[in-house]
Design a protein around this nucleic acid. Structure first.
Ligand SMILES: [Mn+2]
Ligand SMILES: [Mn+2]
Ligand SMILES: [Zn+2]
Ligand SMILES: [Zn+2]
Lengths: 142, 142
DNA sequence: AATCTACATTATAATAATTCTAAACTGTTG
DNA sequence: CAACAGTTTAGAATTATTATAATGTAGATT
């Protein structure tokens, strides 16, 4: 979803009613320079602290999943104990900082195209994603 | 952990008391031809149905995490709603069948070595893992 | 502009996965 | 065979997520 676009139109395009809550959520998620990663809790905090919007937890869940289904968000699995979402919905790889629990996007140029030589009969490849886990260097040696 | 090895010794080696429950769990997990993937629920079922062992859920969780910490199991993140564990603790990649929710190991030869060109200051790479999501082919076209 | 209706929001309850607690139990050491 | 530290256990607590059902609202219809 592009920055500063007409969110009302964008929502209508995919058959979602442009309600107050959904528009606010679009503003928080998409009116920024760069795409970003968040958990549901991050998002609830952003909405209440930065935007002064109290949106019920159920609505945040519903809306995030609605946006996901419509292709405006992507869910990222890193940690089985927490769901991360990504406003960058294009195919891309990630670094995950195990110290800060922060997700960082890889550029195209950071990792070569992955070539899959195996193929599973009757199955098509939906996605190929690389996760690079990193952590502070100064633990193991001084 | 090798098949049919002396689990009592193996447990002692890493400072875990070889209790009945832990030994049974070793047998279920490691006395088989191939490594495999499981969820906590799978494991509880295996123990109760195949082995006729009633081990409390808390102990299964504790033991799986103890084995994980000692490097005898690895946790795999695929689906933020469920934890998968792997008895294959070497670095390897996975296919995930989105129809059956089954994890399949990749061989070395299936995917070329991944070359990471970016490096994050002060951070070292702990792991590089590829997840290939596959699904039935006969959905989109006849 | 008032009314209608399908869809959305909300508070709250329910469920599921996981972790915690504290008492009973057991492997090891001497 | 004590004694003790570590382990198991049932059940409670916690956390993340989803379901429910009453209320609200966007957008169409009069
Ligand atoms: Mn989800
Ligand atoms: Mn875990
Ligand atoms: Zn991303
Ligand atoms: Zn595996």
């Amino acid at each position: 979803m592009p920055k500063n676009c007409n969110f009302i139109e964008k929502l209508r395009e995919v058959g979602l009613r442009p309600t107050k809550q959904r528009i606010k959520m679009c503003e928080v998620l998409y009116n920024r320079e760069k795409t970003f990663h968040f958990t549901i809790n991050d998002l609830v905090k952003l909405l209440s602290e930065k935007m002064n919007q109290k949106i019920s937890l159920a609505t945040v869940y519903n809306t995030v999943h609605a946006f996901e289904k419509k292709g405006y968000l992507k869910e990222i699995s890193i940690d089985s104990h927490k769901s991360y979402f990504d406003t960058n919905t294009s195919a891309h790889h990630h670094f995950f900082d195990e110290d800060t629990h922060e997700l960082i996007d890889c550029d195209e140029s950071d990792i070569d195209k992955i070539n899959i030589r195996k193929n599973i009969t009757g199955k098509k490849i939906n996605s190929v994603e690389v996760l690079v886990r990193v952590a502070s260097d100064n633990q193991t040696q001084k």
